[in-house]
Write a protein that binds this DNA or RNA. Structure first.
Lengths: 231, 231, 231, 231
DNA sequence: TTGTAATCGAGACGGTACGTCATGTCTTGCG
DNA sequence: CGCAAGACATGACGTACCGTCTCGATTACAA
């Protein structure tokens, strides 16, 4: 999802990188977050890695705190101490994976040709959503977000937000280049392009292919109404 | 979701709650479905009603088979005998609610004015998605679908399918009336209109208002590209 | 303790025998005791046996419900369902061991010679208290009794009571035979003979030997005051 | 228990609560006892006081090191550093309470009338064992002693020993005064008088009253056998 | 009309996981 | 260095549910 953009962005080379800073738990902590200075960084990482791996292997329904703790070689309490819910752990796992999500903000490629750029980005998105390494974990995250408003807010702000901003920027650039109508609502435009794709993936309402995203892009750009002249 | 359409369709007056026909479990049963003639219809109904009610009250995460059985005044085994999973129970609960989903297929209103009709339908959809009676249960269903391919297939076929067909029909009608371009891919068109709305709701990525759906409709109809003439 | 008497009583041959009837838990149950008809007798026995064995092996301090359940091949809930406390399990384990404690009541040997009979009985008692198979379990029981009044009452009534009655009977018989003063308080007499022995054992206040019990018996019979004649 | 004697002894006026000398842990320490010069006396006292208080309040079963540390305003490590076990803390708490147990040794009152003196002492003992301030703590100590041989030895030597010696002395004095037979085994005599009382208390095998102790004294002095002449 | 066989409510069972508490060890920073 | 504070791995607590099972008691079909 958010990964996609990052991958395509020219300035970032690799996915592998060091988590810059992010430490604390994602949502408002149940108890006033402990000192956090004493926090064991190795344990934190082991937990998030274990969570992500288990998500791939056993799926969301069978993911247990006990399992994560065991896999991470960590006491359960260490998880409960720092995260308020299973969802928060999953969220942080994604946050870590996206290299902190907090480095320089992501950018979409801008070759000057909007349609080509969108096509490339959406092809990559489909590839990622389809990748077995990410499919189950991302469904898990989507599930938690769907059922936990607090987590949804955190997601909105920390992970989805920057990504959406990048998309909006690319469209704004196209607008300046005269490739988009001036009165187009960019927020709606973004959701109109990515919404159908995400929906197909999450609800499995149809095959999720590169060809499908092409149709979405064409349709979105042209609109539904008949076009006056040719084309 | 699917309810919406039904409500607006002129020919259906009330939300009659009697399940017409559907009996068996949703997905392929673990054991070759029992005789089914002996089945206690009252228990079946009590279970589905209890499931739906509990979904409203406690939410997806805390829904348990034991809880459903207790609320329905039914032995646990009666649930395990007829449904293969919790998700299947939830699914059937929706199926029952939508009066079997199996009466005459749903239709969208067709006043001749596509934009007006879409506006009305999407306003109703937003009202339903926002209704506290349906919000949590529908999120639960969406969650199960997202994580269980088999259930997703059943949903696609039995609940979402007919609804999507109705939407497609309405667009086809508009196409015939010259309100839609002839080369528009109707499937994509449907997903481009409803996708953003469902996504906003499920992921809480922004406020879900009637005003928002209006913007979606306008944008979808006009498309993103600059239009040659004024408009 | 109670075992002792049984062993020496002529009419009982072996320690091994079938638990006659006793089923329910020892103390007033937290929840109104479940049906008890559906109760799995095999599990019940496995639990009590496991509890007793673990008591020998790991001692009271390290005895855990989890350990008992694991050793017995039983779910924890099965223990919590039928016993209100760890102490109650231990108690029932002893009850089972003493072959129900509920068959015909125990009797002390009565050869006509009180001193000889007491000597034999106390020697056996010392042997039992010293036996590594019984030492730790009995200390555990004593510990639980000391700290749980309810359990103490159950012990008093079901295990210690009959034993004490047998001792009292033997002394009454001696009284009738003119070997005991007529005005002797039999309850006090019993406690004066067995009390010092139990105390030595429980508090390890001195070596617990046959020789010691002989001195107790002599002293108790003669009393502390100087005897008028030579003796 | 041991307190009793002290209280009745004429030469001691008050229960001065200052620990005279005792410093180190009770039993052989796990690590070679630390410097002990650096030791914080205030912490030590706070710990023992907290332990005793908690024993009263929550009882033996729920006494935790964490609880003691919290109540005493002390780090857990400070407890682990100086005491090898929970039992040792309890033991030291009693030691402190009995003013070090190390001042001049305790004495029993000696009015010349053995029976009267024993009666007075045992009445006081009963009062103390019955006192809610001491009941639970003393049961805790008894429990630890029963299950920990090392602790039992320490108890025997440091707390019970001097007390038993005082009792023995009183009986020896009576012996010299011709109130006790010359061949009476004083150790056994002491245990025959105090054993039944302690047993009743610890096992709750019957009501623990002044009247009961009177019967014990009478019976012990007279013995069980019929007395030749009148009385 | 009467078996007879399956369903039903109930709930015990062996389990897994929950979220909490305590253990005993450790590390950090103050005095 | 002792100390308070408290994180940590460990492991037990007592509870909630899982999915399977067994128990009578209905209940409806076939004889």
């Amino acid at each position: 999802m958010w990964e996609t953009v990052r991958e395509l962005a020219p300035q970032r080379k690799t996915r592998r990188s060091v988590l810059t800073g992010n430490v604390g738990p994602v949502t408002t902590p149940h108890r006033p977050t402990p000192s956090a200075t004493r926090r064991n960084e190795a344990s934190r990482r082991a937990i998030l890695a274990a969570a992500f791996d288990l998500l791939q292997e056993v799926g969301y329904a069978k993911l247990s705190i006990e399992g994560i703790a065991a896999r991470a070689g960590v006491g359960k309490q260490t998880i409960y101490r720092w995260w308020p819910s299973k969802g928060a752990v999953i969220f942080d796992a994604f946050l870590m994976l996206s290299e902190g999500g907090e480095g320089e903000p992501p950018t979409l490629p801008d070759s000057g040709d909007l349609e080509a750029d969108l096509t490339a980005v959406l092809h990559a998105t489909v590839a990622e959503l389809t990748d077995p390494r990410y499919d189950r974990p991302m469904r898990a995250l989507a599930t938690e977000i769907a059922n936990d408003p607090e987590l949804a807010a955190a997601y909105s702000q920390r992970l989805d937000g920057p990504m959406k901003e990048a998309k909006r920027q690319r469209l704004a650039s196209a607008q300046r280049a005269g490739q988009l109508a001036e009165d187009v609502d960019l927020d709606v435009a973004v959701e109109m392009i990515w919404g159908p794709v995400l929906n197909r993936w999450l609800q499995r309402s149809g095959p999720l292919t590169a060809e499908y995203t092409d149709r979405v892009i064409t349709t979105a750009l042209n609109g539904l109404r008949p076009r006056p002249s040719g084309r």
